[in-house]
Design a protein around this nucleic acid. Structure first.
Lengths: 187, 187
DNA sequence: CCAACCATGTAATTTGTTACATGATTCC
DNA sequence: GGAATCATGTAACAAATTACATGGTTGG
C-alpha cells in the first residue's frame, strides 16, 4: 500500500494563480514568472498544459471560454469552488523545507581540482547575476509603491519580494568576501 | 537529433567526493550531507547506487575492495583517472543557475486565501529552522579552526559554509521583518 | 535485548525538461 | 517583410523520490 506524499506543486501554483484571475496556459507561464520566478524555478508549458488537463478532469478548474480571435483560439481556465477548497487545504498545511541546488557552490566545493581562475569566474558571474536581480527587485518595488492599491495579495507579494532583496544582497556580500579570499589565495 | 544538455549532477557529486577519498555508497550519502547538504538537497540511495553502477560501467569509478567484515560486505569505490578527467571537464564549465523551490514563499504568495495565522506559523517555523542552521554552521566553523590543516579543499569548503552563514542570517532578518508586517496586518 | 546505525540495493512512480510541431498576430 | 511574441500542445526522456526488501553490527 502506497502512501505517496510527494506533492505536485505545479498544481497548487496553477490553482493559486487562477484564484486571482481566469487565465490561459500561456498567461499562467508569464504570470508565474513575475509572481514567483524569484524563488521558484519556472514552470514550463510541458508541465502547465498537462496539469491543466488533469485539474479539469478532477473538477478543480474549468474551461470557461474558448475565445476565437480570428483563427487563434485562447482557452481560458477558471478555478472552481472545489479548486479553491483544494488550494485552501494545501495552504493551511505546514510548508515543506526548501529545495536548493546551487551548482556554483558544488563547483566551488571541488574547486581545488582545477585552477582557481575558474572559481573566480563563477563567483563573479554569480555576483553579476545577483546585482542585476537587485535592480529588478528594486524597480518592481518602486512601481508597486506608485500603483499602491492596498489589497491583501499585494501585501503578500511584497513579502516575497523583500525575501529576494534580503537574500540577494547577502549573496552579493558573500560573493565579495569569497572573491577577496580567492584572490588572496591565488597570489 | 537531440542535443540533450541536462546534466546528471549526482554523477559529479559522487566523482567529486571520490576525488578526496575512496568510499562506499553509504559513506557517500553521509559525507554528501555534511559537505553539500547546506545548499544541495540530499542524495538518496535510490540515486547513489544506480549512479555508482553506471559510473563503474563507464570506467569513471572502480570497485577497489569488497571488504568482508564477518557477513557484512562493504564495497569501496575509487575514482579512476578517466573519472578525474570527467570531473575536471565539468568543473571548468560555467555553473548553471541555481534551482530554487521555496514552498514557504509559495504559500505566502497565496496566503490571503486563508487566515493570516497560517502565514505567521510558517514564517516562525522557517525562522527557527534557520536559527538552528546558524548554530550548526558556527559550530562547524569553530571545529574547523581547531583542526586547521591548511589544505586547499578545506578553504573551498569554508567558502560554501560562509555562504550558508550569510544567506541564513539574511533569511532570519527577513523572517523578523515579515513577522512584524504580518502581526501589524492582523491587528 | 533492543534501538540506532551500518550497509546494499530494486521497483514503481512522479516530476520535470527539452525538443518537436504548428501556426497566428503584432509591431517595427 | 521579418522578428518577436502570442498560443497550444505532445513525445521522449531524464531526474528524483518513496517504498520496499534484507540483514549485520554496535552500544547501552
Amino acid at each position: 500500500m502506497d502512501t505517496l506524499v510527494r506533492e505536485n506543486k505545479a498544481k497548487f501554483i496553477i490553482l493559486g494563480l487562477l484564484s486571482h484571475d481566469s487565465l490561459t496556459g500561456y498567461d499562467l507561464r508569464q504570470i508565474a514568472e513575475r509572481m514567483i520566478g524569484n524563488f521558484w524555478t519556472d514552470l514550463s508549458y510541458g508541465q502547465i498544459y498537462p496539469t491543466l488537463r488533469t485539474l479539469e478532469k478532477q473538477g478543480l478548474v474549468s474551461k470557461t471560454a474558448e475565445v476565437e480571435e480570428g483563427e487563434r483560439i485562447r482557452k481560458i481556465y477558471s478555478i472552481t469552488p472545489e479548486g479553491v477548497g483544494e488550494l485552501r487545504k494545501w495552504l493551511i498545511e505546514p510548508a515543506d523545507t526548501e529545495i536548493l541546488k546551487l551548482d556554483i557552490l558544488l563547483k566551488l566545493t571541488f574547486g581545488a581540482k582545477v585552477g582557481i581562475e575558474y572559481s573566480i569566474k563563477n563567483v563573479e558571474e554569480f555576483k553579476q547575476r545577483n546585482e542585476a536581480a537587485i535592480e529588478r527587485y528594486d524597480a518592481i518595488e518602486r512601481s508597486l509603491h506608485n500603483t499602491l492599491h492596498e489589497n491583501e495579495d499585494h501585501a503578500f507579494f511584497l513579502l516575497t519580494l523583500h525575501y529576494g532583496q534580503y537574500v540577494t544582497r547577502a549573496q552579493i556580500q558573500w560573493a565579495n568576501k569569497a572573491l577577496e579570499t580567492l584572490h588572496a589565495t591565488s597570489k
